[in-house]
Design a protein around this nucleic acid. Structure first.
Lengths: 244, 244
DNA sequence: TCACCTATTTTGGTCTAACCAAATTTAGAA
DNA sequence: TTCTAAATTTGGTTAGACCAAAATAGGTGA
């Protein structure tokens, strides 16, 4: 009863012809998440509460929640209360997963994405060679050791492989890159899973990682970039075969 | 015996306990868009058709449409039929706009994003210096001329500025980069708009563009990278002042 | 006291039936 | 044929209801 017509005389708000009613709720909830009024990782109030609080019907409230879910500001498990998630670059990229899947169902989509990954990592190792700190290099070294230790176990090797590359993404100390790393690995994982692995391949990849590491440690950006590019392009040859 | 003792073993999924009903519709429509059964840029069938076609209630259908809209597969103007949009990298990044806005309401978010833009463009000009084709360089030259011609008109300068950088994003012939260019400019535009402009600043920026162009033309990646970095970092100093 | 099982209440997911206003289509007038 | 006005979709929204799963309260036995 907040809206219908309290006092028709003076109310002159061009009411809500602009956009859906759910948008208003979405904006308000977004704002409440931003201000911390709705705490990160806490459940959203029940729908029936929200409909009273916003003076809207249940359908509108649900639509708002759905929108928030689709943009990653709340996490919606089927029969549970939606969980508030304060957005970061990671959740941002997570939210793109649905569409990205469709972009990757043909080879050109995957290739374009993989090429851009190579491109980014080339820049990353170059940057690392120039500006990595001592502890960055130590972390890289540890990741490399773990990678070597896992050569016999393809499953573990896969994990330590990702972790090694992940260290690279962490070196610029910019949260955008780790988010991108997770995005790349998540998006491309389905294709990598189809690739056959073997201790022999693992050893080749480990050697490549070693080359990259040494170039970074020796502060040689050109060598690092070249090693990285060779490494990832070789991997592509193996992935490419998985397209029919 | 009638006790609802949930023996997890023998319980079979009688209906479709797996996720929401709208998810099924979303998946089917996604598929129909992918196969072309639903044509790009054509309107979606009316909700009442869809509810019959999928045997679901209107609420569910609307939820599905909302989800599709939020992930960018259909374009939803308030009182019009949703328009099918076959996804590409561009629409993918468009769909992130909502959340990205919230990531950019503090300085650190903007700075992180801008830093990653600098990072990408450094790699881009480096790549351009190494591998740009003749017609790429010709295009860059034309963009530079347009930029110079617009020095007196800050509004036109802004456009030609973006266009000049846009040419850079086009050089690798990978659709990911133009999409990223649009994303960066779109995301960062609100902050750039607050920045004061003047023919003097424009001239400085044009000179920077000129430096970048010359370095690329002369096939000097290091000079190109340095020119680009100086250019964008100088711009950041102006943007930074817009935060209170 | 506290862990464990059960009954009760919430709450999310779905449906039906309607109403309104804007969009679209149709029909009719000029 | 063209333009306008009425009739018909169709999207946006509300209300009330049902079900099953989740959360909670309550009681029982160790």
């Amino acid at each position: 009863m907040a809206h219908p017509k309290p006092h028709p005389a003076d109310i002159q708000i061009p009411p809500d012809r602009t956009g859906r009613a759910s948008d208003r709720i979405v904006r308000e909830i977004e704002a409440q998440i931003a201000t911390g009024e709705l705490v990160d990782r806490a459940p959203l109030p029940p729908e029936r509460d929200l409909m009273e609080r916003f003076g809207a019907s249940r359908a509108v409230v649900r639509e708002a929640i759905s929108a928030l879910s689709n943009s990653g500001l709340v996490e919606c498990k089927p029969r549970f209360r939606p969980i508030v998630r304060k957005p970061d670059f990671r959740t941002l990229i997570d939210a793109t997963g649905d569409v990205m899947r469709h972009l990757l169902d043909d080879e050109s989509g995957v290739k374009n994405l993989y090429e851009s990954r190579i491109f980014l990592e080339r820049a990353l190792v170059r940057e690392s060679a120039l500006r990595a700190r001592k502890d960055d290099i130590a972390e890289l070294s540890m990741a490399l050791d773990a990678n070597e230790a896992a050569i016999a176990d393809s499953d573990a090797f896969y994990k330590t492989d990702m972790a090694f590359h992940g260290v690279l993404y962490g070196i610029p100390k910019n949260p955008v890159y780790p988010a991108l790393h997770q995005a790349f690995t998540g998006w491309l994982a389905p294709h990598w899973d189809k690739m056959l692995r073997s201790p022999e391949r693992n050893r080749v990849n480990f050697r490549a990682h070693q080359d990259i590491f040494l170039a970074i440690r020796d502060r040689d950006p050109d060598a690092a970039e070249m090693a990285l590019e060779n490494h990832l392009r070789a991997a592509w040859e193996y992935v490419r075969g998985t397209f029919d």
